[in-house]
Simulated scan of single mutants.
Amino acid sequence: MHVTAVAKDGRFCEIVRWGSSGVDEIVDVQCFQPGGVPADTPFTVLWTVSSGVLPPGVGAYASIQVTSGLLAQSYNSTGAGVTVTPVSTGIYLLRVAGVGLGTGVLA
Protein backbone atom coordinates (compact mmCIF):
# COMPACT_ATOMS: atom_id res chain seq x y z
CA MET A 1 0.00 0.00 0.00
CA HIS A 2 1.42 3.38 -0.97
CA VAL A 3 -0.06 6.90 -1.04
CA THR A 4 1.44 9.93 -2.78
CA ALA A 5 0.24 13.54 -2.50
CA VAL A 6 -0.03 15.26 -5.88
CA ALA A 7 0.92 18.82 -4.96
CA LYS A 8 3.88 21.12 -5.56
CA ASP A 9 3.64 22.96 -2.23
CA GLY A 10 5.00 20.30 0.13
CA ARG A 11 1.69 18.70 1.09
CA PHE A 12 1.85 15.08 2.11
CA CYS A 13 -0.55 12.20 2.72
CA GLU A 14 -0.37 9.18 4.98
CA ILE A 15 -2.21 5.89 5.12
CA VAL A 16 -3.56 5.77 8.65
CA ARG A 17 -4.92 2.24 8.56
CA TRP A 18 -6.11 -0.38 6.14
CA GLY A 19 -7.68 -3.77 6.21
CA SER A 20 -10.35 -5.88 4.64
CA SER A 21 -14.09 -6.00 5.05
CA GLY A 22 -14.99 -9.28 3.44
CA VAL A 23 -13.27 -9.13 0.07
CA ASP A 24 -13.24 -5.29 -0.05
CA GLU A 25 -10.09 -3.41 0.94
CA ILE A 26 -10.72 -0.33 3.12
CA VAL A 27 -8.10 2.46 3.30
CA ASP A 28 -8.05 5.56 5.55
CA VAL A 29 -5.93 8.39 4.09
CA GLN A 30 -5.06 11.69 5.79
CA CYS A 31 -3.42 14.62 3.98
CA PHE A 32 -1.64 17.67 5.43
CA GLN A 33 -0.06 21.00 4.55
CA PRO A 34 3.57 21.56 5.57
CA GLY A 35 3.56 21.87 9.35
CA GLY A 36 0.88 19.20 9.80
CA VAL A 37 -2.38 21.15 9.26
CA PRO A 38 -5.03 18.89 7.64
CA ALA A 39 -5.63 19.88 3.99
CA ASP A 40 -7.73 18.63 1.11
CA THR A 41 -5.07 17.39 -1.30
CA PRO A 42 -5.10 15.45 -4.56
CA PHE A 43 -3.47 12.04 -4.04
CA THR A 44 -2.93 8.62 -5.55
CA VAL A 45 -3.02 5.23 -3.85
CA LEU A 46 -1.37 2.06 -5.15
CA TRP A 47 -2.45 -1.29 -3.70
CA THR A 48 -1.17 -4.74 -4.62
CA VAL A 49 -1.36 -8.12 -2.96
CA SER A 50 0.82 -11.15 -3.30
CA SER A 51 1.87 -13.88 -0.95
CA GLY A 52 4.56 -15.84 -2.67
CA VAL A 53 3.47 -17.87 -5.66
CA LEU A 54 -0.29 -17.60 -6.15
CA PRO A 55 -2.55 -19.92 -8.12
CA PRO A 56 -3.65 -18.59 -11.52
CA GLY A 57 -6.40 -15.98 -11.21
CA VAL A 58 -5.58 -15.10 -7.59
CA GLY A 59 -4.15 -11.70 -6.66
CA ALA A 60 -5.21 -8.15 -7.32
CA TYR A 61 -4.01 -4.67 -8.19
CA ALA A 62 -5.68 -1.30 -7.69
CA SER A 63 -4.71 2.28 -8.47
CA ILE A 64 -6.74 5.29 -7.28
CA GLN A 65 -6.36 9.01 -8.02
CA VAL A 66 -8.35 11.52 -5.94
CA THR A 67 -8.64 15.21 -6.83
CA SER A 68 -10.73 17.79 -4.92
CA GLY A 69 -12.06 14.99 -2.72
CA LEU A 70 -13.49 13.16 -5.75
CA LEU A 71 -12.44 10.01 -7.53
CA ALA A 72 -10.59 11.29 -10.62
CA GLN A 73 -9.63 7.91 -12.02
CA SER A 74 -9.20 4.37 -10.80
CA TYR A 75 -8.31 0.87 -11.86
CA ASN A 76 -9.34 -2.33 -10.08
CA SER A 77 -7.99 -5.54 -11.58
CA THR A 78 -11.08 -7.44 -10.38
CA GLY A 79 -13.38 -5.16 -12.39
CA ALA A 80 -15.28 -4.26 -9.20
CA GLY A 81 -15.89 -0.72 -7.97
CA VAL A 82 -13.71 1.83 -6.21
CA THR A 83 -15.21 4.58 -4.04
CA VAL A 84 -13.79 7.53 -2.12
CA THR A 85 -15.62 9.27 0.71
CA PRO A 86 -14.30 12.57 2.13
CA VAL A 87 -14.65 12.27 5.92
CA SER A 88 -13.26 15.65 7.01
CA THR A 89 -10.70 18.18 5.77
CA GLY A 90 -7.81 16.13 4.43
CA ILE A 91 -9.30 12.79 5.57
CA TYR A 92 -10.65 10.21 3.11
CA LEU A 93 -12.08 6.69 3.21
CA LEU A 94 -11.45 4.51 0.15
CA ARG A 95 -13.20 1.21 -0.61
CA VAL A 96 -11.66 -1.04 -3.25
CA ALA A 97 -14.22 -3.78 -3.87
CA GLY A 98 -13.29 -7.39 -4.38
CA VAL A 99 -9.50 -7.19 -3.95
CA GLY A 100 -9.12 -8.32 -0.33
CA LEU A 101 -8.40 -11.86 0.77
CA GLY A 102 -11.35 -11.84 3.18
CA THR A 103 -9.14 -12.74 6.12
CA GLY A 104 -8.83 -9.56 8.17
CA VAL A 105 -10.45 -6.46 9.55
CA LEU A 106 -9.33 -2.85 9.73
CA ALA A 107 -6.07 -2.58 11.63
Rank of each mutant, 00 (worst) to 15 (best):
M1A: 12
M1L: 12
A5E: 02
V6P: 00
V6Y: 00
A7M: 01
D9A: 11
G10L: 08
G10F: 07
F12T: 10
C13Q: 01
E14R: 15
V16W: 06
V16N: 10
G19H: 13
G19W: 14
S20T: 13
S20L: 03
D24T: 11
E25W: 11
E25H: 12
I26S: 07
D28C: 01
V29S: 05
V29R: 03
V29M: 06
C31T: 05
C31Q: 04
Q33C: 01
P34C: 09
G36L: 08
V37C: 02
D40P: 03
F43I: 08
T44V: 13
V45Q: 02
V45N: 02
L46E: 13
L46I: 08
L46C: 02
W47V: 07
W47I: 06
T48Q: 12
V49N: 09
V49Q: 09
S50H: 07
S50M: 02
V53A: 06
V53P: 00
P55C: 08
P56R: 07
P56M: 03
P56Q: 08
V58I: 14
V58F: 10
G59R: 03
G59C: 02
A60I: 01
A62S: 15
V66D: 04
G69K: 06
G69I: 09
L70G: 07
L70A: 15
L71H: 13
A72L: 05
Q73Y: 01
T78G: 05
G79P: 08
A80I: 00
G81N: 15
V82I: 15
T83H: 07
T83D: 11
T85Q: 15
P86E: 06
V87E: 12
V87H: 04
V87Y: 06
V87P: 04
S88N: 14
S88I: 09
T89N: 05
T89R: 10
Y92I: 05
L93Y: 11
L93A: 14
V96I: 15
V99K: 07
V99Q: 06
V99F: 05
V99Y: 06
G100S: 13
G102N: 09
V105N: 11
V105Q: 13
L106R: 14
A107D: 15
A107G: 14
